[in-house]
């Protein structure tokens, strides 16, 4: 067993420096690497380019890094629900690249899987495709989208072991598996780090080969963005 376990979040973020490109898993606030984000805020690292489906909310998730002006550029698919983000974007302080959600996922997956680029129909004929190569296949037009190049990927899983194997829970899975192995260093934080051998190899979502560092997060707030319920009959 190759041991990927690090003592804690400080060791996990070691090597992150100004102007790096970092991926962050999560959809909205679900399945975000809460502990790594908190440590990056404390570290004061600046000029980050962040690849993440969303940009958090004003006081949680990547919103915390935005608030401290630690992010230079966001690459996302949807950035509503964040006033500070909107303010920084409209004032020009923050560079923003909006891309289709499926394209975001596939550019991660391409980096993980060793493809330099992929053709997708998403965004053809829109401003997203401006300046990009296009090509026709069987009468339909596609846009060439390049694999991401990132220094770090921060992901969050439900359970993991020191070998770096990961299991996700519910829709907190989202972009996390696609970002594993898509950057030079993948840092996984888990709610529960279990002894090696305890996870059933049949049930593992991401094999440890895609993960360089793993640690158990100290605590998880797991904030709910839109609490919607129905009345009991």
């Amino acid at each position: 067993m190759i041991n990927k376990q690090v003592a804690g979040v400080q060791d996990a973020i070691a090597g992150v420096s100004d102007n790096m490109t970092c991926m962050f898993g999560g959809f909205g606030l679900s399945g975000i690497p809460e502990n790594a984000i908190a440590a990056l805020v404390k570290s004061g690292v600046k000029g980050l380019t962040c690849i993440s489906n969303n940009a958090g909310v004003d006081d949680f998730g990547l919103g915390l890094l935005l608030h401290q002006h630690q992010i230079k550029k966001m690459v996302s698919s949807y950035v509503g629900e964040n006033d500070e983000f909107e303010r920084q974007m409209l004032s020009g302080e923050l560079d923003v690249e909006l891309i289709p959600q499926g394209t975001l996922a596939e550019r991660c997956r391409a980096a993980q899987a060793g493809f330099p680029a992929v053709y997708t129909p998403a965004g053809y004929g829109t401003e997203v495709a401006e300046g990009k190569e296009t090509r026709e296949f069987d009468g339909k037009m596609y846009v060439l989208e390049h694999a991401f190049k990132a220094d770090f990927a921060f992901v969050k899983a439900w359970k993991g072991d020191a070998a770096g194997n990961l299991i996700f829970k519910g829709t907190a899975r989202n972009f996390n598996p696609n970002m594993c192995g898509a950057a030079k260093i993948t840092v996984a934080e888990v709610e529960e780090l279990v002894p090696v051998g305890e996870l059933d190899p049949n049930q593992i979502h991401i094999p440890g080969i895609f993960v360089q560092r793993i640690f158990q997060g100290e605590k998880y707030e797991k904030r709910i963005e839109q609490r919607t319920v129905r009345k009991r009959e």
Binding site: G80, L98, Q101, G102
Partner: peptide, 10 residues
């Protein structure tokens, strides 16, 4: 208003 396309373009 710039919220982004999310999955709509795909």
């Amino acid at each position: 208003m710039v919220k982004g396309m999310g999955g709509a373009m795909d």
